[in-house]
Design a protein around this nucleic acid. Structure first.
Lengths: 232, 232
DNA sequence: TCATGCTGTTAATCTAATGTTAACCCGATT
DNA sequence: AATCGGGTTAACATTAGATTAACAGCATGA
């Protein structure tokens, strides 16, 4: 995953600082927390970061001042400002320096994380150049669920919509049991005898399609459901 | 130069729409204003834009819905949403779609322009790599979508506008599935039985036009859409 | 071990989607 | 008004995909 991004967080309030740090760490980011602008700048010089999140109001050196210094060193690193109020002057000043985003406290953590994610994604254009289509690696196969294609070496098979939907579910649950009932409701929107039988037909097809790699198996758990397994 | 950026503005309120349009025009941007999501989508299909500014609340098709359709055609174009309130759910939804910014009405015009400028500046680097020429290479054909011409060796065929629009969409999605619904909404502005049938007629025509190069195929994905493929 | 309900598999069947051609419609042009 | 270009609608043919059927193994618990 591209989640190993390194983030420098500069926030003087200990409580808020730790909360934000945790939020980000849970998402898999590497986070370094510093408590004022001066320390923040020193830390920034120590390592290469992908993103800086700066509190505006801080002792020693405020967020804008820090941001200007950071910009002198790195003109392109994404910056997010945190501010207590939504003062327009603050916002404009931040944008002038080149903020990529601007978040007012208190903030919604889900929104905050989405913004961080969006900004990191934007700055990682080379890595994301694959157009973010959902491609699953299944053994030696690549399954593109958006384009309904299943590739094995040089061969590419066009799957149907339903085949794709089912395979996608299986991929998302690799090594976990997927209950028949779940598949039925997700794909057909209801669960009945014939839906079940139809599902079995699809499972047979998918097994056939995936047959070239013997490490792959769609295992039946009697009376419960199926499990996609890939041995290594 | 940077200021010739083309902006698509979709805003149903006439007054606000004109105000924003003027603001942007004064800055030297080329701005096209449309009044609802449906018209916005069709206009988006007509030209290449550098930025879209979308009102969230609109008749016919709201800003989010429009944004999702736009994203399917162009995964990277910057999007700015305008919203009356700062509803958190709205913000989160917007970010999920991939908003680059989010502006609540009423807004400060200076801030607004700075944001627009910042976003355009950011996306400019990527543009350099993007070929701005409207000529697509399709196998042994050259398709000039601006001039509606399709060349094969020495022969040049004049396409109609609709033929061009559809072929352009297909070209932009080479090797990817293009949903019928998207084509219908992009080209016709609505999706109905007869639009679908008309589309099939066009597909037949395009297949005929492209028939000289056997490596080219417009593949149908049953119940989903079409995919332009060029084997190598 | 038997009985019974599940599952695997293949093939027949049904239906909606698509392919194709031609007739039709309608606005623009002569 | 006649023609033309372009698109839509109609009509019919064809096909693809999903469902249903049929039958053959299996698994599991009594």
């Amino acid at each position: 995953m591209s989640n190993s991004a390194k983030i420098l967080l500069v926030e003087d309030d200990d409580n808020l600082g730790f909360v934000i740090q945790d939020l980000l760490k849970v998402e898999g980011y590497k986070v370094h927390l510093r408590k004022d602008g001066k320390e923040g700048l020193m830390q920034f010089n120590q390592e290469d970061y992908d993103l800086c999140i700066l509190d505006v109001m801080m002792p020693k050196k405020d967020g804008f001042s820090l941001a200007r210094d950071i910009r002198k060193i790195n003109a392109h690193i994404p910056l997010i400002f945190l501010t207590a109020k939504s003062m327009t002057e603050d916002r404009v000043e931040g944008l002038r320096i080149g903020a990529d985003d601007y978040i007012t406290k208190p903030f919604d953590s889900e929104e905050f994380l989405l913004r961080v994610k969006a900004i990191l994604k934007r700055s990682q254009k080379e890595e994301e150049s694959t157009d973010s289509s959902a491609v699953y690696e299944v053994g030696a196969y690549q399954f593109d669920s958006d384009n309904f294609t299943l590739k094995y070496q040089s061969e590419e098979r066009q799957l149907t919509k339903k085949e794709s939907e089912i395979l996608k579910l299986l991929c998302q649950h690799t090594d976990k049991v997927l209950e028949r009932e779940i598949i039925a409701n997700m794909v057909w929107g209801d669960d009945s005898y014939f839906v079940g039988r139809s599902m079995d037909v699809f499972i047979t097809k998918l097994r056939k399609y995936l047959g070239s790699d013997p490490r792959i198996s769609i295992v039946n758990i009697h009376g419960v459901g199926f499990k996609l397994q890939v041995e290594d």
